[in-house]
Design a protein around this nucleic acid. Sequence first.
RNA 1: GCGCCCGUAGCUCAGUUGGAUAGAGCACGAGACUUCUAAUCUUGAGGCCGGUGGUUCGAAUCCACCCGGGCGCACCA
Length: 578
Amino acid sequence: MTDTQTIYATFSGHIAAALDALEAAGTLPGGLNRAAITIEPPRDPAHGDLSTNAAMVLAKPGGTNPRALAEALVGELVKVPSVASAEIAGPGFINLRIAPGAWIAELRAIAALAADYGRSQVGGGSTVNVEYVSANPTGPMHMGHCRGAVVGDALASLLEWAGHKVIREYYVNDAGGQVDVLARSVHLRYREALGEAVGAIPEGLYPGDYLVPVGQALAAEFGDRYAALPEADWLVLFRTRAVAAMLEQIKADLALLGIAHDLFSSEAELQAAGKPEEAEAWLRAHDLVYDGELEAPKGKTLDDWEPVELPLFRSTRFGDDQDRPIKKSDGSWTYFGADMAYHYQKAQNADALVDIWGADHAGTVKRIKAAVAALTEGGKPFEVKLVQMVQLMKGGAPFKMSKRSGNFVTLADVAEMVGKDVVRFTMLTRKPEAQMDFDFDKVVEASKDNPVFYVQYAHARIRSTLRKGAAEGITPADTDLALLGPEELDLVKVAAQFPRLVEAAAAAREPHRIAFYLYDLAGAFHAYWNLGNDNPEKRFIVAHDARLTAARLYLATQIGQIVHNGLAILGVEAVEEM
RNA sequence: GCGCCCGUAGCUCAGUUGGAUAGAGCACGAGACUUCUAAUCUUGAGGCCGGUGGUUCGAAUCCACCCGGGCGCACCA
């Protein structure tokens, strides 16, 4: 797509050229920092198509005043053929109006690039590892996992659109105490499957019914061989089988939302391969790990607190509140100790790392960022995006989820009840760092108020119109695009923002911007559509004018293409009819 | 006590990384369906952008301190 430049990129070039001309003429000193210059559509369309703050940004360092510089700049910009007018406004904004031909050209660019319109090269092909979900493999996915899963998946797609290679990774915590609990829980279900009356599930074990089939499968495979043996004889086997079964379940759950990871990394394998030891050795050699005493936890009183000497990582050197243990007193790795090595491993296979975490892990962000900074010697960009909690509501009252009780709302239930597209879009029409309520009854009952239908409806209307046009023998054509008027070009102007929006959203790692943009685009489309309700001459299909109809259908095709592309980033289906 | 996130219309939320007169949806008022799909559109009303100072041409946005809500503060995961 090298020769098909979007209109914003083109004009950014025009302004740079105009500034170069002023420097050459001596109006402006050379070498000024142009990084703060923006070129964007003004909020108020009455101000024109494009607006730049160049004069205001450069006036002070250039030793002049904004108005004077703006006038000089305007003198250069009016020389550009596609500039219809250039005006100075307010404190020194330059507002540009773009000739219709340039917008028509943009419309053709959409058609030419089609499903690739909006893709960008800003990522430069660099590899970004996005780690998301990473829920403990001890049960099915529940609603608490949903938001991070959707946001991570959409972010991964967005980064691909922005020109990155993306690794979608899931970290499997199959090495801690919780998977031993899982193994014991499954052993109980195994004995149950063999006919033993196990009664109520004891406190401290996972009570969920989802473990029943796992126990049954083990009973079918091994008979009563492990029923009466001590734990040491079956723990590893049962743990392995149980984790594998849970992972299978998790993958199936995620598939319901259209989510598939490229890579599942096992914590147990990482430890078996000695990766934490390697990291520790390197850190000790650099005086970043030492043996010391952990401070007592603050803000709560622990009766059984006893200071012990542990290997500590110097995270305080990187802004953390205290140094963090990488091993427990029994010699095994802490979660952090293994996680550190895991991130180091990821950093070796990617140019940048992004983790999507639930907000309940916010307290550990500093230490892991510190560890990555230390182990990569600051060489790898690494950010942790925190996704705030979803308060699940039912009939206006909070609905508590607890994995231990087994009484939780599963992701599969929700996906089945409200549908993948609604779940995904709903999770993405909110910035992730804000808390959100997900009211079951509301989303199910009032689903037609959901923005996702509004956007999908726009696409369905377009497809329907194209079908009707085809039935009447008229297909979209670009032969008479000059027939498109101001209202049609307004639609193109909204559509033309898509590429810069993809770049901005990717740079900010904020896929929700795409969702809000699509809502705006759909709104502009629906508004245009309704012109045709009042005036048949404004419809896409105008019975007596085949040339105009062909041009408008061409426009409709491209608008539909962008809705399709945007929804593709979000993993939501662009439906043909509703 | 400390750390992180949030606070914008009655409600749910955007706000293009510091731009011009702060925007949508829902709800409320008034209108448009023998339709290219009304799951839509047009229009009215609704604001101390939590508060106070600061930074500058310019602040909802950045900084400091308060107020309020959420999450977290174990060798857990």
